[in-house]
Amino acid sequence: MEKYRVAFIGCGNRAKAHAAAIREDSRCEVVALSDLYAEAAQAFNEQFGFGAALFTDYEVMLAEVKPDIVISCLWTPLHLQMFRACAAAGVRAVHSEKPMAPAWGDCLEMARIAEATGSQLTFCHQRRFASGNRLVRQWVEKGRIGQLLRMDLYSPPNLLDCGTHTFDQALSFNGEFGAKWVLGAVDGTNPLNWFDVSAESMAVGTLVFENAVRANVQTGGPDQDMHTGVRLIGSKGFIEVNWDGEIGEAVIYDDPSWKPEMPASSEREQMAGVVEDIVGSLAAGREPELSYRKALRASEIIYAFYESVRRHARIELPLAGMNDNPFIQLLEAGHFAPAAGQGA
């Protein structure tokens, strides 16, 4: 059994869930930790008993330690430069917190680097491994609700940081078919800041997938009838399932007595799935479930939404002719100034 040398870049709160799962995998040895704040890396090291070397500069760490796997829990604007450095240093697998990047061009560049170098790149859409989500995927594949016709997609604000989980969940339920077109609207009059990226407080829209399944979308705002997750509507019934795989209403039209089992889900289960995906895929040379290619599909939908707002138009995919973050460009140009009489 091959042993993998693991390093962490970023030792904040989110890294703890990764550390707990990595510690349980006998194939992994955590050899280095990097954080701008030395005391954070030290506390992290002590909490998990890694006995790892500590650094405040991850590029120095990469050069001196040469890890096989890097777990990155940095804020979104730092993802591209981190991955570029890891790939240049020969890191075999890099697992990053989501979302991919704060601009579409950065997402594409991360994908290009992964393809050019062969460095395995994954993003933490960990909810793919929740028991309920796995079960719903099986039901859809077996036709339990008939032909999938439509989905209602929900998340808290905003599209980039929270919506990425819902889009990824929808893509997984719908056989990984990409989107065909997107038409969206956002409320940017009270912008948010998530991990140093400006974002809208509400978004609504419609998208159609390549297999003709239609989806309505709402992130944030009032009157959501689901806080997170997906309502799958098929020709024979429907299922509501939240981010973590908890099943709400579920109806089979010709079998009204049917009550689905309610599998429990936990962060531990999901993160164990993440680690197995990272390590098992690296060992077997297979495409990970959390591959950057899947994250890129979710990101493309998000940036198409923003481009729809900028152009006041329906956006055909694949997304072309833009590389920035249209929401941020519109925000900085004063596009979302409050209407007269609404106040600042």
Rank of each mutant, 00 (worst) to 15 (best):
M1G: 14
R5L: 09
A7G: 11
F8G: 01
I9R: 12
N13L: 09
R14D: 06
A17W: 11
H18D: 09
A19S: 07
A20E: 13
D25P: 00
C28Y: 05
A32H: 09
A32L: 09
A32C: 09
L33H: 09
L33A: 08
D35Q: 02
L36P: 07
A38P: 07
A38L: 15
E39C: 03
F44H: 10
N45W: 04
E46D: 13
Q47E: 15
F48T: 08
F48R: 07
G51F: 14
A52N: 10
L54K: 11
L54P: 09
F55E: 01
Y58T: 08
Y58C: 12
E59A: 10
M61C: 14
L62R: 10
E64I: 04
W75C: 05
P77I: 06
L80C: 04
Q81G: 03
F83W: 04
F83S: 04
R84G: 05
A85H: 06
C86N: 10
C86S: 14
G90A: 13
G90S: 13
P99R: 03
M100K: 03
C107P: 05
L108R: 15
M110P: 05
A114Q: 11
G118V: 02
S119C: 15
T122A: 09
F129T: 12
S131L: 14
G132T: 12
N133F: 02
N133W: 01
R134T: 14
I145D: 01
R150S: 11
R150L: 06
D152R: 04
L153C: 15
Y154I: 01
Y154M: 03
S155D: 14
D161P: 00
T166A: 15
T166E: 07
F167V: 08
D168C: 02
Q169S: 15
L171S: 02
G175V: 03
G175D: 03
G175W: 01
E176Y: 07
A179G: 15
V182P: 06
V182Y: 03
A185C: 03
V186P: 01
N190W: 06
S201M: 12
M202L: 12
M202R: 14
M202Y: 07
G205N: 12
T206W: 09
L207C: 12
A212L: 04
V213N: 00
V213A: 00
A215R: 00
V217H: 01
Q218V: 05
H227K: 10
G229P: 02
G229Y: 08
I233K: 01
S235C: 08
N242S: 08
N242A: 04
E246G: 01
E246D: 05
E246I: 11
E249W: 02
Y253S: 02
D255C: 10
P256D: 05
P256M: 05
P260I: 14
E261D: 15
E261K: 13
M271Q: 12
I278D: 06
G280P: 09
S281Q: 12
L282H: 13
L282V: 10
L282T: 12
A283I: 07
G285L: 13
G285K: 13
E287W: 03
A298F: 08
E300A: 11
E300Y: 08
E300L: 09
A304E: 08
R310P: 10
R311W: 01
R314H: 02
L317G: 10
A320W: 01
M322V: 13
N325L: 01
P326L: 04
F327D: 00
F327T: 01
Q329M: 02
G334I: 12
G341R: 05
G341C: 07
G343S: 04
G343E: 03
